[in-house]
Amino acid sequence: MSPSTSATPPLPERFRGAAVIGGTHGLGRALARTARDRGLHTVVYGRTAETLSDDGLHPRHLDLCDPHSVRDTPVDVPSPCYVLWVAGAFLKKTLADTTEDEVEQLTRLMFTGPVLFLRRLLAAVEEPVHLITVASSSAWKRRERESLYCGLKAAQATIVRNLVPELRAAHPENRITLINPGGLAVPDFHTGLALDFGAMMDPDHVARIIWDIAADQRRTFTEVQILRSREPGSEGTPEVSYGARTPQAPEEPGTATAPPAPTPHP
C-alpha cells in the first residue's frame, strides 16, 4: 500500500497524552514531535531529555541502563495515552569481539530496561493504552556481525506480540502496534559506518506514517513493515506492508547446502 501522509494532523480523539521511551534522537524524537503537533501532551523519556526543554515537549530523565533510574523515574502520564517504545542503539560486531560490558549495556538499553519501565508504566495507567513499539526489520532479516542487535530486536517484537492477550484482558480498548522499520537516515545511530543516507528513509516521514497507522487502527493488534524502496529513482521511499515476516535463512540465497540423502536400511 502507499504510505499515508495526512496533510492536516487528525484530532487525538479521546487520547490525551503520549509517553515516548527513547524520544531524544532519530525516529523517537520525530515521533515525539509529531505527537506534540497532533495535540497530545507528550512526555519524552531519555538520557538527554533535558535538551528538549524548548521543543514544547515534557522531558523526563531516564537512563535505561541504570536500574535505579528505571525503578524511580516517575510514570504518571496523561491518560488515556499512547506509549511508544523506541529506545535503541546499533552495534555491528561479531559476538566473539563484543565485550561483556557491551552485551550488558545494550541488553539493558534495548530490552531489560524498557521492559521493566514499561511494566511500571502499564501498571500505573488505569485508562486505555495504545502501545506503539518500534522494533526493526533486523528482527527477521539475515544480517552479518549484528547477532546481538538482531536478537534483542527479535526479543522486543516477541514480547510485544505476547502482551496482546494481557492488554486485551486488562481493558477492551487497549491497542498494540508493532512497527518493523528498515534503514533510517539517522547518522548518529549508525556511528562509524560508511552508509548512503540519501538512499535511506527520512525519520520525519516515517514518524508521520506510524502516527497515521496508529490513529486508524481499530483491531487490538497490528504488525507493520516499513521498508525502504531500492528502485532506481525511488531509493529510500517508505514501502508499507502488513503482517509478520518469516525469518530469513542465515545462509546467502543459493548457498545453502542440501542435506545428505538418507541411508537406505539393509
Rank of each mutant, 00 (worst) to 15 (best):
I176S: 02
Y82F: 15
A7V: 12
G233E: 13
R145S: 11
R228E: 04
T107Q: 02
A207Q: 01
R228T: 00
D196C: 05
A256D: 00
A258N: 04
K141P: 00
R143K: 10
T99E: 02
R219V: 09
G233C: 05
R71F: 09
T237F: 15
Y82T: 09
R33W: 05
V125C: 05
T98V: 08
R14L: 06
Q156M: 15
L95Y: 10
A123G: 15
G46D: 11
L148S: 01
L195K: 08
A244F: 05
Y82P: 06
N174Y: 06
V75L: 12
S147G: 07
G254Q: 13
P238N: 10
V164I: 09
D216V: 04
E223R: 03
A135L: 05
H25Y: 14
T255D: 05
F221N: 07
L62N: 11
E146T: 11
N162M: 07
N162P: 07
Q225D: 05
T99P: 06
P78E: 03
A96Y: 03
P3E: 06
L40R: 10
L64I: 05
P181D: 00
P128L: 14
A49M: 11
A261Q: 14
P266S: 12
E252W: 11
M201K: 00
A244P: 09
S79H: 12
L11F: 03
Y82Q: 11
A96E: 12
E144I: 08
D66P: 08
L31C: 01
T220L: 00
G182Y: 02
V86R: 06
S69R: 10
R175I: 09
S136P: 13
P12L: 02
I210K: 05
V44Y: 08
A96N: 14
A214M: 00
V20Q: 12
S229W: 08
D188A: 13
A157I: 10
V20W: 13
V115E: 00
P262I: 05
Y149N: 02
S79G: 12
F117P: 01
D54W: 04
A256E: 13
L184P: 04
P264Q: 11
I179N: 02
G151P: 03
P114A: 14
W85H: 02
L118S: 05
T51Q: 15
R119W: 02
K93L: 11
F117K: 01
G56F: 04
L31W: 03
T51D: 09
T51K: 09
A123Q: 11
V20H: 14
A169R: 10
L106G: 01
P203M: 15
Q105H: 11
Q248G: 00
R71C: 08
E50A: 15
T34S: 03
A258R: 10
E102S: 12
E50Q: 15
D54S: 13
Q105N: 13
P181R: 04
T8L: 03
A256G: 10
E146R: 00
T99A: 14
L109T: 15
D212Y: 03
F189C: 12
Y82L: 13
H190I: 04
E173L: 12
H190P: 01
V77W: 01
G22T: 12
V125Q: 15
E235R: 07
R108E: 14
H25P: 01
D101R: 14
I132G: 06
P3W: 04
D101G: 04
A185Q: 09
S2R: 08
